[in-house]
Design a protein around this nucleic acid. Structure first.
Length: 424
RNA sequence: GGAGAGGUGGGUGAGUGGCUGAAACCAACAGUUUGCUAAACUGUCGUACAUCAAAAGUGUACCGGGGGUUCGAAUCCCCCCCUCUCCGCCA
């Protein structure tokens, strides 16, 4: 969530920036500022009342010690009267804080200055592309045909066991997935990210910390009996490791990576978008997370972008990098790069990674701070994360792009992980 | 799941109604001193909000979370969460 001080001191800028996300925030920010004023007024009143009754309580104690019970009783009555008032104010203050918080939580993050205006994905800015997409004359069959032909994935079986969007990977495809996971983790480790195995169920506080809750609970699977959510991405448990933590400045950067399955309800999707591996309720992903000093977070974002580019490149897939426009960005992000690989038989770009800087938006929600120098005041850290990478669409592109007469060729970097170089 | 014990500041740990925002020790930080990868001494050493131009200062809140009793709660009562020990179950 945005910092109150920022809204107070840069009201116009905040409104202008949120307009890039196609939000007219003037009214809600005005409401926030007036509620904030209200809150402060109430607190001043309450604090002085409490100070007074603290004084009285002390005096009562002293009087009892001096055996002046009558005088003490007088003060007690006075204090009781004060208490009624202060209780009213306490209720007021709590309501005001609640109201303020409810408003603040509804504001999305302000986009970075480089974020283009726009409402639809078509308005995303292509910042990089590589690979010759016209070269794939071999790519005849879409992956859902190949997976049947080579007995790689059984979507029907997944329907039977669970439901749509939960495929069963078999044989060489299961092995290919495991290979990709291991390859991605090894690469991330080599790049300085510490490997983490987090829980894949999270509590409400964690969901709030990274911005999934409130309001977006419909996108997560919920285990009602225990009040837990299945993670939509490893970002949630991994970033929340640092909830309510004050780091020392020299601990930056914190770089973490994790493989987890990811669960998304994805209500309301349909058509060719969801065919085959294009959109699933459960999928595997290796995530990279970074915590950084505010002065260095954009540098870190570029590094993470370059890292992911290298990863996609190493698999030999044509890809492009988009800087998302305001309208296509997520609620919590300040700047997002999407990576799309070209799926040659479907003749479409598939998103395989999303690399974002959240600046202090998540950090503010989860009170992730750092201390500047040895005894500086705590400041909010910046959080970043990116997929490196999400598997299903990578698998789809690999299968489609690399299909040949003699079978599907596996990229060389994976051979030591798969143990085979071809699916035939 | 059952029985018992317990959750205090970065750590250990004292505190069972007012003199405790919290002893002591350790760690950390700053300085002084000693001719030497260290010791001794002194000081600093939680967070948030408010007040203030800002700093200092001051006020308020916070001793797992939430409620209650009381003039006054870390301390008493209730609910919840978590940890440990034993038992049960189990990969």
């Amino acid at each position: 969530m945005l910092q109150l001080n920022y809204l107070r001191e840069n009201t116009d800028e905040a409104i202008a920036r949120l307009a890039v996300k196609n939000m007219d925030a003037a009214a809600i920010i005005a409401q926030i500022l007036s509620e904030d004023e209200n809150r402060r007024k109430t607190q001043v009143a309450l604090d002085s009342l409490l100070a007074e009754s603290n004084q009285l309580a002390k005096q009562v104690g002293d009087l009892y010690k001096q055996k002046k019970a009558a005088e003490a009783d007088d003060l007690k009555n006075k204090s009781t009267a004060l208490k009624e008032e202060s209780q009213k104010l306490e209720v007021q203050l709590a309501a005001s804080e609640q109201q303020l918080n409810d408003l603040l939580v509804r504001l999305p993050n302000t986009p970075h200055a480089s974020v283009p205006k726009g409402k639809t994905p078509e308005e995303n800015e292509i910042v990089h592309s590589e690979g010759d997409i016209a070269a794939y004359t071999n790519a005849i069959s879409p992956h859902w045909e190949l997976t049947t032909k080579y007995d790689l994935i059984d979507f029907e079986l997944g329907n039977k066991i669970t439901g749509a969007g939960f495929p069963v990977y078999k044989g060489k495809c299961a092995r290919l997935q495991r290979a990709l996971i291991n390859y991605f983790l090894d690469q991330a480790t080599e790049a300085g990210f510490q490997e983490i195995q987090p829980p894949i169920l999270i509590n409400e506080a964690s969901g709030f910390g990274t911005g999934q809750l409130p309001d977006k609970e419909g996108q997560m699977y919920f285990v009602g009996a225990d009040n837990l959510y299945l993670i939509p991405t490893a970002e949630v448990p991994v970033t929340n490791m640092y909830r309510d933590v004050i780091l020392k400045e020299d601990q930056f950067p914190v770089k973490l990576t994790a493989y987890t399955p990811c669960f998304r309800r994805e209500a309301g999707s349909y058509g060719k978008d969801v065919r085959g591996l294009n959109r699933l309720h459960q999928f595997d992903k290796v995530e990279i997370v970074q915590l950084q000093h505010p002065d260095k977070s954009y540098e870190a974002l570029e590094q993470m972008k370059d890292y992911v580019a290298g990863l996609v490149r190493s698999l030999g897939l044509p890809f492009r990098i988009l800087r998302l426009c305001g309208g296509d960005m997520s609620f919590a992000s300040a700047l997002t790069y999407d990576f799309e690989v070209y799926s040659a038989a479907q003749k479409r770009w598939l998103e395989v990674s999303s690399v974002s800087n959240f600046e202090s938006f998540q950090a503010n929600r989860m009170k992730l701070r750092f201390r500047e120098g040895n005894n500086g005041k705590p400041r909010l850290a910046h959080t970043l994360n990116g997929s490196a990478l999400a598997l299903p669409r990578i698998v789809a592109a690999l299968l489609e792009n690399n299909q040949h007469e003699d079978g599907i060729h596996i990229p060389a970097v994976l051979h030591r992980y798969t143990g085979f170089d071809k699916i035939a």
